[in-house]
Design a protein around this nucleic acid. Structure first.
Length: 215
DNA sequence: CCATTAAATAGGA
DNA sequence: TCCTATTTAATGG
């Protein structure tokens, strides 16, 4: 039952014929993680697929600070790079809530990929998205001031809509933007005080995109 | 300008 | 209500 969700639900596999999905399903293991539990850490080399819930993927800086790379939700996965002999020696995955994870060993995934080349196309597509997202983040982090990072982040996720909802916890968004929750809170208030945005909890209305752009 | 620390307040189970 | 998350305030690099 639960295994069914692992494959049928995820973009990486759900375009395959039922028989192929069935076969991959048989190679899958699954496990439910409680909130805050570590799903994987450096040295773990499987493919992890989120069947339900969400996890955050981060690495630690030399000084021990957490650097959040992305939040994975239902249908997302992590660990595909191990397929190409790139070991995971920096990434941690931690459940943000009760989360069901399906795992495929490196060998199992390799096998599935060889038998179903169309997975490769999906993999490429999804990898491209991930790369683009990381490039955006790199761009934020290259900005000197936090309010600048925040302003551009808001503009990016707004995609020209005026109304947006932050999907990360404030603490995680702070780590994503390379700052602390305290500074993030202050900067949000700064933007609000200047009438660039209006905020109600995690819901934000962009009042002056022009001004945000120019920060 | 921003991180850190400490304390107050809001929010969720 | 208890525990956690977020915000506010004060201080120092």
């Amino acid at each position: 039952m639960a295994e069914h969700l692992c494959i049928a639900q995820v973009p990486l596999f759900n375009h395959l014929p039922i028989e192929a999905q069935q076969e991959i399903m048989n190679l899958t293991h699954h496990h439910i993680y409680k909130k805050n539990e570590l799903v994987f850490q450096p040295g773990d080399e499987n493919l992890y697929i989120i069947a339900s819930g969400s996890i955050k993927v981060y690495q630690l800086s030399i000084s021990g600070k957490e650097h959040l790379l992305r939040v994975l939700k239902e249908g997302d996965y992590e660990g595909e790079k191990q397929l190409f002999n790139m070991p995971n020696d920096t990434l941690f995955g931690q459940a943000l809530e009760e989360t069901e994870i399906c795992t495929l060993t490196q060998q199992a995934f390799h096998q599935a990929l060889l038998e179903n080349p169309s997975i490769a196309i999906k993999l490429l597509e999804l990898s491209a998205k991930r790369t683009a997202q990381l490039e955006k983040q790199a761009q934020f982090l290259s900005m000197e001031r936090v309010e600048e990072r925040l302003a551009h982040y808001l503009l990016q996720i707004s995609a020209n809509q005026s109304s947006i909802t932050l999907f990360m916890k404030m603490k995680d968004l702070a780590l994503y933007l390379g700052t602390t929750p305290e500074t993030l809170s202050r900067k949000l208030r700064y933007l609000e005080d200047h009438n660039y945005i209006k905020r109600t909890g995690k819901h934000i209305t962009i009042l002056d995109p022009e001004a945000l752009e120019n920060i």
